[in-house]
Design a protein around this nucleic acid. Structure first.
Length: 937
RNA sequence: GCUGAAGUGGUGGAAUUGGUAGACACGUUGGACUUAAAAUCCAAUGAACAUUAGUUCGUGCGGGUUCAAGUCCCGCCUUCAGUACCA
């Protein structure tokens, strides 16, 4: 019998699929366990060896939990809406659905051959209408809800309307737009429908609002900040302008505090929680109102240092601030307008990057200090961001370095309000050491007391109150793209209405072109006929052929994170057509027990998903308000790129050792042309591309050496290693073991195919332990003491490793176990059978094959995890290292049951000890039973 | 700047949390088998000196605590990741 991995793996993959071995049941006597991977976007390039890393880890854990007797849910699906398929459609005209379908086929084939224990009967695809029906449904729920701060939960918008009808909105404590007007019940009832709708929109959890965005006219879409480089689009280099657009937004800010608090209840990595905390950016302080001289308006500022209110010597407004043009004096008008224009030209990113330049303009206007009534000059400056707080600051130069720098630069006074502190060189911002001076009623108080007092006094005169501010902004939810979820929205008199749930899903219409329309509408505007919606249940909608648009439909689509914000709930009951999942399924599975994925989603997907989950929880649709108990970030597997060096201006390549002092241009060479000694297959490289065909190669020692560098694996860097090749050459089990063996799961590490022979050899040795040319070697022989010791040592270590997610060390443990058992010539079934169960999460195919060879008819995945028995590890004696002054000298074997005193006596009487002491008397003897004896002196 | 993580042989990485540093694997060297190669097996492999024992030095750097420090404390350096004019 030979270890023929290709046949074995194909055989068991087929068996698992046919027998639905890993199908999870929605009700079971067993305890539930839900292991989830972040689902992939099926890109056209297929999988590289880096992608399966997290899936292998989660698969090991899922298989382990099955052995432990859990009912394990381990699903997989596709985040199948996304930009690349749309880009491809723009270039080729091929419908993104076709591209996506083809890519998914490739992904599925690649995943299948690695032998994952996914329950494919629950597969989800975010681009399937049966799936996005429920994404649209959740959107409708958000639209129909508002956030009640008193209840600290989302509530039905109808309840809010009832309050408005009965008592107006004066006492409503809601998260809503800042500029909501106050009205009485009578006023509300007198409003017309449009007015009512526009007010409600200011309360809804998803709402339409004018948002300032980066608009790229050439691409016809909004760009995120990181898609802009030096003021032009990253893709194509087209100009980008700041533009106000009406967009859907998600009122995630309503959940800021709960998103922050919830972090305490979940077992996620500290770095990830910290990222989310920073992103939410809570700061506690006060909102202060400043009167403006000769004006009815007031400037509202947020400050974390109300204790320094007497140190204010100027105010700064963001250039975009609403009041700027209103308060600017005629003398300063020209200068201010020039400044505003200059800053508007710079992208937000440029402004952020350039922190050193101090710029600003005096408006000519003065505010009035709330207590001293002294005039305070009002400036504008681009170091104040319109998007944070109120877009205005009270500048306290003695207590804030930026204010200090600004004051110095423009020669503004810097009054000192701190006791015993020198501020001639820099501002003093140490809250803990603060004692206030020159500040009227705050004199002599520390930071904490002064803050409290200042807020109290501000409240007394009606010019401020305590306030908590969050950095977290509401999330823009509209995209001018084709390949995303359509909104279930139509417009009547400019007001959005939801399409009745009965008509969901609103399917994507067919379009000729995937670009924006000539009139600048999003791609969905290209649809000739798109008929869906209903006011009085009649079919009405955009129909360009008959020109019968009755109610226009929303033409934007949802962003990529819409579908991924709730998919974990869909897996619980993926086929349900009545609800996104049944109550029974949701109550049974509840939440994800273990979630594995990349840390790059820290402030995107993982925050939005928590937000939606909390919303669904508030509305009673899900039983828990955090969707994932534990989360692990797998590191990335990087590629080792290879470089050849072309002499500039010539078609001549120098070997790595010869480039010193030469002007060469490094060019990526495909890593498949490189052997394990970094030598280039020159012929293969020449045939790669026409431009290299006639190139000259300067060798060293008869070979061409390439340079190497570790980079992200990517097609464009020609450093991609395809798992298909590894599986063909070494088998899926080798790939699985090797990916784990490479290093700690969370770590970033380069792929290096050279080492895979190590784990492959291990699998061959494992096979040989069970079978040789004459067939199966396993017997019913009684296990020896050594056999049992090896087995139980391995059980203990492997169990600990899996529970700590140190999968890399258990691979070593297996190697040691197999080496020991081989040396012990172990053939005992009582040892070799449980050993297979230990190995099967890591290398399921070989384990399953040998398991069946041993005469088991059911899959190994139904076997129980072996029980650790400590008694096999207890020894009768132990080698004690004997050290003198901390330096190891020799070891002595002593019985385990010896007492401390007896050990000391025996050691001191030993001839080697006497030899070492050479007649001297030791000062001290330290005995640590089971560990070491140290003789000092 | 801030936050988080990490610095151990030629390489990837172990070290039961303060107890014989370098497990396991790759690589390298030597050997066996073979006409030869591949495959397989065996041995050596942190450094220096001694080449028989052995000795000394070694976990980014400098201190400290301890009988004993990769591990704990203080002060630095470097790398990676995230984030950034947040009032």
């Amino acid at each position: 019998m030979k270890y023929n991995f290709n046949d074995i793996e194909a055989k068991w993959q087929k068996y698992w699929a046919e027998n639905q071995t890993f199908k999870a049941e929605n009700n079971s006597e067993k305890p539930k366990y839900y292991v989830l991977d972040m689902f992939p976007y099926p890109s056209g390039a297929g999988l590289h060896v880096g992608h399966p890393l997290g899936y292998i880890a989660s698969d090991i854990y899922a298989r382990y939990k099955r052995h432990q007797g859990f009912n394990v849910l381990h699903p997989q699906g596709y985040d199948s809406f996304g930009l690349p398929a749309e880009q491809y459609a723009i270039q080729t005209g091929q419908h993104p659905a076709i591209t996506t379908e083809a890519n998914i086929k490739t992904y599925r084939r690649q995943l299948d051959q690695i032998g994952f224990s996914f329950d494919w009967s629950r597969e989800v695809r975010t681009s399937n209408p049966e799936y996005y029906k429920w994404t649209q449904w959740i959107f409708i729920q958000l639209f129909g809800s508002w956030y009640n701060i008193d209840a600290n939960a989302a509530e039905d918008i109808i309840d809010l309307m009832i309050i408005f009808e009965n008592e107006g909105n004066a006492n409503v404590n809601a998260v809503c737009d800042d500029d909501v007007e106050i009205f009485t019940a009578e006023e509300w009832n007198a409003f017309d429908d449009i007015k009512k709708q526009s007010i409600l929109l200011q309360y809804r959890l998803t709402y339409l609002a004018e948002t300032e965005v980066n608009w790229c006219p050439a691409l016809g879409t909004v760009l995120a900040n990181d898609e802009i480089v030096n003021g032009v689009s990253e893709r194509g280099g087209h100009p980008v302008v700041r533009k106000k657009m009406t967009q859907w937004s998600m009122r995630i800010s309503a959940y800021a505090e709960r998103l922050l608090q919830g972090l305490e209840t979940i077992d996620w990595t500290d770095s990830l929680k910290e990222s989310q905390r920073n992103w939410i950016g809570k700061s506690v302080g006060a909102q202060v109102e400043f009167r403006i001289q000769n004006s009815e308006s007031r400037i509202s500022v947020f400050t974390t240092r109300p204790d320094t209110i007497f140190g204010v010597s100027f105010m700064t407004l963001a250039p975009e601030h609403d009041l700027v043009l209103q308060i600017t004096t005629p003398e300063q008008k020209a200068e201010v307008e020039a400044y505003i224009e200059a800053t508007a030209k710079r992208s937000e990113r440029e402004r952020m990057a350039d922190v050193k330049t101090i710029s600003g303009v005096f408006t000519g206007a003065y505010a009035e200090h709330p207590f001293t009534k002294a005039p305070i000059p009002i400036w504008i400056g681009d170091y104040v961001l319109a998007g944070y707080g109120t877009g205005a600051v009270m500048a306290v130069p003695c207590g804030d370095q930026r204010d200090y720098d600004f004051a110095k630069h423009f020669n503004i006074a810097i009054p000192n309000i701190f006791e015993g502190v020198d501020i001639s060189e820099e501002a003093f911002a140490d809250k803990d050491k603060t004692v206030i001076a020159n500040s009227d009623f705050l004199n002599g108080l520390n930071y904490k007391k002064a803050t409290k007092r200042a807020i109290f006094e501000l409240e007394q005169i009606g010019q401020g109150q305590g306030k908590t501010n969050y950095r977290l902004r509401d999330a823009v939810f509209s995209r001018q793209r084709y390949w995303g979820e359509p909104f279930p929205v139509y417009y009547v008199d400019g007001m959005p209405r939801m399409i009745d749930e009965a008509h969901l899903p609103i399917q994507l219409p067919e379009v000729e072109k995937y670009l924006p329309t000539e009139t600048g509408e999003p791609p969905l505007g290209n649809a000739n006929v798109w008929a869906w919606c209903t006011e009085t249940n009649a079919v009405v909608a955009n129909d360009k052929i008959n020109n019968t648009t009755v109610f226009s439909l929303e033409l934007n689509t949802m962003p990529g994170w819409a579908g991924s914000s709730w998919y974990f709930n869909r897996y619980m009951d993926a086929g349900n057509t009545e609800a996104f999942a049944s109550k029974e399924a949701l109550n049974y599975w509840k939440d994800v027990d273990l979630y594995i994925g990349g840390s790059e989603h820290a402030t995107g997907h993982l925050l939005y998903a928590r937000f939606w989950q909390k919303f669904l929880f508030d509305k009673g649709f899900v039983p828990v308000d955090e969707f994932a108990k534990k989360l692990i970030n797998q590191g990335m597997i990087l590629g080792t790129s290879a470089f050849v060096y072309r002499v500039e201006g010539e078609n001549k390549f120098l070997s790595k050792g010869l480039i010193e002092g030469e002007k060469v241009q490094p060019i990526h060479a495909d890593v498949s042309f490189i052997n394990s000694s970094d030598e280039l297959d020159v012929e293969a490289f020449k045939n790669w591309r026409a431009e290299f065909k006639d190139a000259e190669f300067v060798l060293e020692d008869g070979v061409y050496k390439v340079g190497r560098d570790v980079e992200k694996m990517s097609k464009s860097k020609y450093n991609v290693v395809n798992p298909d090749d590894i599986v063909a050459d070494y088998g899926a089990d080798s790939l699985r073991l090797y990916e784990m063996f490479l290093g700690p799961l969370e770590q970033y590490k380069p792929w290096n195919s050279a080492g895979i022979t190590g784990v492959h050899n291990f699998l061959k040795k494992l096979w040989k332990l069970y079978a040789d040319d004459n067939g199966l070697k396993v017997t019913d022989a009684e296990p020896t003491k050594d056999n049992l010791k090896t087995l139980h040592k391995t059980i203990k270590k492997v169990q600990e490793d899996i529970e700590n997610f140190s999968f890399n060390t258990s691979v070593s443990t297996f190697m040691i176990a197999v080496n020991e058992l081989t040396q012990q010539k172990c053939t005992s079934k009582a040892i070799l059978e449980p050993l297979l169960v230990l190995i099967s999460p890591y290398a399921p195919h070989i384990a399953e094959e040998l398991w069946s060879q041993l005469g088991n008819s059911a899959s190994i995945s139904t076997a129980a995890f072996p029980v650790f028995d400590e008694s096999h590890l207890v020894e009768s004696s132990k080698n004690y290292p004997i050290s003198f002054n901390g330096k190891m000298r020799f070891t002595l074997e002593l019985p385990m049951d010896m007492s401390k005193d007896e050990i000391e006596k025996t050691v001191m009487a030993h001839e080697k000890t006497q030899e070492q002491l050479a007649g001297r008397t030791p000062k001290k003897v330290i005995v640590v039973p089971g560990k070491i004896v140290n003789i000092v002196g």
